[in-house]
Design a protein around this nucleic acid. Structure first.
Lengths: 216, 216
DNA sequence: ACAAGAAGTGAATCACGATTCACACCTTGT
DNA sequence: ACAAGGTGTGAATCGTGATTCACTTCTTGT
């Protein structure tokens, strides 16, 4: 025996893998999953095509991992935003605000996560993600309904509609906005009214300065 | 000179073209634009592959025409629905109801029109369509705001959000519904509340029996 | 029935990415 | 320095559809 993987190598490999994933996500961010091409990603990462296959079984696996990472980051951001103290409505507002801002900042990515057709593998993950995502909103809506601050409504459907409204108006193909904050604000109002919390809409600056880490 | 296109031939050609378009749309209806393959369409129409190219320059042209037809049909349905007499809110409700029902009945098609990535050519049309579509809602929202029955809001953004909410909740990948009418109804309520017409929501059966021609 | 002018056809060809793989180049323990 | 066991590479190969085109089969006016 003369070779055994050492710490140093393990780190380098991890770094390379990371670099590939970053390059891949950058492409998806810019052009959706259609832009996730092995040649391109390899080139971006300064590596050979074959190398990519040392790290990922195939394109779909790479896509799936990019999807999962981005997805988990989004869900985490939402959960964090919802964890704020306050009434169901206040928390919903925070959540929407964060979701909206992220969608606005990375529209292509948002659309990719929500709708880009990829492999069946990714499609399954997408379902998971969507359910998860909607689930958080749904829980909040249910809380609001129980406490009487929201009118009765099918929570599941409302949650999905919220996601659609935000995604479409801010990240859709027709989205144009002079002022980011105004747009985010407008969508939040729209959404709050939609779930029946129109009257209790907090002041415009109730959830303004939430730091957003797009990368971390 | 010994051959001149006659009425009979012209008709047959038109019929063939029509048949190809129908077959193509059927595929899109079932599996989005990814399912629009020349081989498949030709087979469905009972024709040879080459024949398709006698009628359409290439796949993109065919896709574009399928898109345009479906699109125009949708817009026409919306316009017709909005043409009903009554207040801005009533008309909006009718429009939403029709839009929702159509999306629910042909979810894959709805998604294809709204989000499926195709050629740049189609992408341009999509923009047109979306603008057109949103425009009708927008006009109505503006009327409502002028007359004071709707609160001030950025009409363009609200219109897009409405489209997103309906499409996502009824035609999205996570859409599941026991009862069609209930779902349509719930989305309509959601939307009306969203634009600020929550109080004036008409009785549940205010716009129930609008005939929908899915084909014509 | 014949010639001109199309329309119909599908096997062959292209195009475009994904995927493979034989080979070059490191890393490590002796 | 050497052998073992990787890792990195990119030209060659595959796979999947779109597209072409030489050829067959109508249609029509004479």
């Amino acid at each position: 025996m003369a070779y055994r993987e050492t710490q140093r190598v393990r780190r380098r490999k991890a770094a390379t893998r990371e670099q590939l994933l970053r390059a891949a996500e950058a492409r998806v961010r810019a052009g959706g999953f259609a832009a996730l091409q092995i040649q391109t990603v390899a080139a971006d990462a300064g590596l050979g095509v074959g190398t990519v296959y040392r790290y990922f079984r195939n394109r779909d696996s790479l896509a799936a991992e990019v999807f999962q990472r981005a997805t988990e980051r989004e869900v985490a951001a939402l959960v964090k935003a919802l964890a704020v103290p306050g009434s169901a409505i206040t928390r919903l507002h925070h959540g929407l605000s964060v979701f909206a801002r992220r969608a606005l900042r990375a529209p292509r990515l948002a659309r990719a996560l929500i709708a880009d057709p990829v492999s069946p593998e990714v499609e399954a993950q997408r379902l998971h993600y969507r359910r998860d995502y909607a689930c958080h909103f749904r829980t909040l809506l249910e809380q609001g309904m129980e406490s009487g601050s929201l009118p009765p409504q099918p929570a599941e459907l409302s949650a999905n509609a919220l996601v659609g409204a935000v995604a479409e108006s801010l990240a859709g193909p027709v989205a144009e906005h002079e002022n980011e904050s105004e747009a985010v604000d407008a969508v939040c109002r729209f959404c709050l009214r939609a779930v029946g919390a129109g009257a209790e809409i907090p002041a415009a600056d109730a959830a303004p300065s939430l730091e957003i880490n797009h990368e971390g």
